[in-house]
Amino acid sequence: MSDLRPTELAVTADLTSARFRIGVKRGHWRKVSYVFPILVIAVAAVEPNGNSTEYFFRFELTGFPGTAPDVRIWDYATDALLAVDQRPKGSNRVTEAFKSWGNQTVYRPWDRLAGAHNNWSSGYPDLAWNAKRDLTFILEDLYGLLTSNTTAHGIRQAA
């Protein structure tokens, strides 16, 4: 029996969970495509000027959930990494998370490769991946980053 079966079941369970569906219903994210082990999800975003948009993310899910997802910001039209000049803009926290770096994944502690880089996931267990996490954990972090411009835009509008 293939060891892929429980992995695929775990992904399916996450995609049908109430937590995931609620995010879809609220317009925070949407599933774009899924053929194991590749999942593409669009996450809603707010640009620095207050305009709403979305960004695509490619999840490589081999070994999920025991192995952390490999997550890359994606150009869905060309099926390739999103060009650096088209990536999210905003605070240092946003630009650093989506920067181009050696392994080209999203630079957050929960990512398979970024988490191991400089061992920084061990310093931030609240953001590190473990087998009890689900895909929505990552999506909530991405959504929080991508909509963080909301806060600054609100201040500028009130000024």
Partner: peptide, 24 residues
């Protein structure tokens, strides 16, 4: 929580620099 955060960083709150506010 977002709405409380918006108030906390606003001029009615701690008046956080708009360049820094998205990191809060």
């Amino acid at each position: 929580v977002q709405r409380v955060l918006d108030w906390a960083v606003s001029r009615d709150g701690f008046n956080i620099d708009p360049a820094v506010a998205p990191e809060m």
